[in-house]
Simulated assay, not measured.
Amino acid sequence: MSGPLNNLKVLDFSTLLPGPYATMLMADMGAEVVRVESPTRLDLVRVLPPMVGKVSAAHGYLNRGKKSIAIDLKKPEGIEIVKQLVAEYDIVVEQFRPGVMARLGLGYEQLKEINPNLIYCSITGYGQTGPYKDRAGHDINYLALSGLSSYSGRAESGPVPLGFQVADVAGGSHHAVMGILAAVIQRSATGVGQHIDISMTDAAFSLNAMSGAGFLAGAPVPAPEKEYLNGGGFYDYYETKDGRFLSVGGLEPQFVQKLCLLLECPDRMNQALSQKPEDQAAFKSMLAEKIKSEDMVYWTEFFAKEDVCIEPVLNLDESVKHPQMVERNMVIQVGGEGGIDQIGFPIKFSETPCAVEEPGAILGAHTAAILEGLKYSEEQIESLQKQRVIKRI
């Protein structure tokens, strides 16, 4: 396999989004990832519409490049298989509630006895400690508790449910990969693995980079449309004549100056750069009126060659066809000719480019091959199948 992580082997016990997204990133970068799945309790993403043939589009994406072994972890024979795998794999990713893996005999303390070099990453909503550690939650709950939702939205209507999972992906998935790779670097120096405790709420809380830093330094509690970057200034979205929107983000003086010249209102520059709320409100009102006077295509063409940090709000159909996305290879075909179109890998490596070959595998597609690699005979594999310890294709 290509990619900079092609010397890493990962056992992935996670489901749904956070863990699978993290291990997808690692698989994209060349790691060998084996999903350890239940033969009877499906990962719901496998049946999440829309489907591409018999494959869920989401599952085909989130689990691309991974192998699948179906093992019943409630049976001793299944636990024994995992323990044999742990001796050969150097990273475990799990997403159960705290204590579940330990009760199965697969907790970090138990598995590091088998493999002292093991890096073991646990991804949960609230972490392995604290009063909420056993509490159920979803992305919207983690964002709510983190404080992020309190100043994201509109003053009149409050926070809005986002169309993408910030705490799950930017929080859980990305921080998990960061933690795992940091532990890999540490292990290369010391030979010792470790347990990584990822809380999606902690990770979301850490995203309070600007407003959180200001508040802790003595600034007022941030609120919707009160901060310069959340609608309190002219940095915002503006509706066009045809009901579409433009994003206006040029905060720096050189961008403001050019914008005011282009819109033939140079006298408004000082107003746009003012910190006074009344000046910002006046400039925003003027900007909104001007932008509402023409449709989105007009403004897109108007600003196309101007360096003012203004771009149209595209829908996904428009985004995947945008020249920038096309040039950056951000939509790829996975599975060969006639395969599935998927989102491309966002990191470009000059020496170890990433190659995605197959979408998410059928449940148990690699069970037999993996067991054969552990020296199980055909008779043993067939016996485990009959006992419903495993499922193979």
Rank of each mutant, 00 (worst) to 15 (best):
A57W: 03
N329R: 13
G172D: 06
V100T: 14
R392I: 15
H366K: 04
L287V: 15
A213K: 00
A183D: 00
F303W: 10
T367G: 10
Y21R: 09
H138Q: 12
I69G: 10
M24N: 04
D28Q: 02
L145C: 01
M210W: 09
S206G: 12
R46F: 06
L16G: 04
P50D: 00
N208V: 13
S247R: 05
D295N: 14
P98K: 02
L251W: 05
L246M: 15
D28N: 00
G212K: 05
P277F: 07
A365S: 12
L314R: 12
K67C: 11
P277A: 10
Q128K: 13
I198H: 00
K321D: 00
S149P: 13
D202R: 09
E372R: 11
K226T: 15
T352C: 10
K241M: 09
I180V: 15
L148T: 05
T300I: 05
G231E: 03
E80N: 12
F215S: 12
Q333Y: 00
S211N: 11
S211E: 11
S206Y: 09
V169C: 01
V308M: 08
I291M: 06
G212F: 06
S188A: 08
G65S: 13
I69S: 07
L44T: 14
Q271Y: 05
L273V: 13
Q387P: 02
R392L: 11
L316Q: 09
G233L: 02
D295L: 00
K133A: 06
R46M: 07
P39Q: 03
V308P: 15
L261R: 10
L262V: 14
G130D: 08
Q280I: 07
L143F: 01
E225M: 08
E301Q: 14
T124N: 05
K348C: 10
D134C: 01
S350K: 06
S206R: 12
Q387M: 09
Q254V: 15
H195I: 01
A87N: 08
M101R: 05
P266A: 04
C121V: 12
Y142H: 09
V313Y: 04
S383D: 11
K284E: 04
G373P: 14
C121L: 06
D267R: 07
P18F: 02
I180K: 06
I393L: 09
V93I: 13
A281I: 14
L384N: 08
N6S: 04
G30S: 11
L25T: 13
G171K: 10
I114S: 06
E379R: 07
V86T: 12
I381A: 01
S274I: 13
I79N: 01
A182G: 01
E77S: 08
N6V: 00
Y235C: 11
P253N: 03
S188M: 11
Q380C: 07
D307C: 07
D72A: 04
T240H: 05
A368P: 01
